[in-house]
Amino acid sequence: MTHSWRNCLLPVLLLFLLCGCGVVTDPRLVSDISRYARSVQTLAKILESHYDDTEALHRRALRDNLDLQFELGGRPEVNIRPLFQPEERSSRKALLEAMTVYVFQLSDALAGDTPEGLIQTGYQAAAKLKNLRADAVNLSHSLTRFQTRELITSLSGFSKILLLPKRNKALARISKRAEPYVRELVILFYIDIGSSRNENRECRYSVSNGFDIRDLNTLDLCEGGLRGLVKNAFEADRITWQQRLNLAMAKERPDPSERRRIIDRIFMLEQARKEEDAVLEATQAALVAMLLAHEALSLDLAIQSGEKSLSARTGFADPVSRFVAEVQGLAANRISVTDRLRSGKSE
């Protein structure tokens, strides 16, 4: 065997293996799943913060009422109980964490060894073999531990190339199996967020397990969920401040600055209510986008593994990018509602 023939052997073998159908992992798919995982993680944090904010608004509404009672000479019992029990919060948090772990495992499994990385590793293996021959010219030399380790690492990468088709089929199967789980998660949180009004006379506040998320347009929720809780908290607070305004105006000498301050407060509450409801509604939209993106990725994995053909893709939409953009928009505009209200704290 000539030197030049040997030099070409390993790279040619690698190219032959990597160009096989279903072996090469589309770098776009690797990137999409990575972006998807990070966006799921961000959305999970945003969802958690919505429950925190709802509790904060609830406390504020009760506190403002108690404040006024104390000012009038009352001695009310200060006992502000949270809306949710700890186990109710933790069950929701656990589900979000389980989903986050799942998508990162998907991303890590796919991105662990990119074709470029493995080809590079293969080339290194070829180089190491060349060096081995060169080092062995002097018979008193043997492989150092470091050289041995390097060689094994290179060859491990080489054998992982052979693993790729099996891995891709497994990932396609895993994501397919997870589809109904992701669907149900989206439905549960979508309904948990709820609605700030009755969307129909024949509205409902819950759905059965078999509900199809694509029927969201026909869902027609009743007022309830986080959006209902938030609306009622703001309304209770507004009523208290309206009482304050009435009392202030009934004084013998009403103070104009006090009147203005209270009116400003009432306006601010209304503005904050609308903004918070808009954010909650946008979160519902992001949940639906998360499901559609997962379905697209699942299809791409099936195409990658050879189980489906390219013709299975329909339309030109990019659900993953859409989901990522929705979450980025939510994160960028995410000012805690308590921060918004803090600018005009109740005196």
Partner: peptide, 27 residues
């Protein structure tokens, strides 16, 4: 009243969490 109608779904959250956790074996 609103909380009651949200928290009667607690079991569905827990059951679904277990399903996600089972997928770890595949990884």
């Amino acid at each position: 009243f609103l909380i009651d109608h949200m928290t009667d779904r607690k079991d569905r959250f827990s059951i679904l969490t277990e399903k996600f956790r089972h997928s770890r074996r595949d990884f």
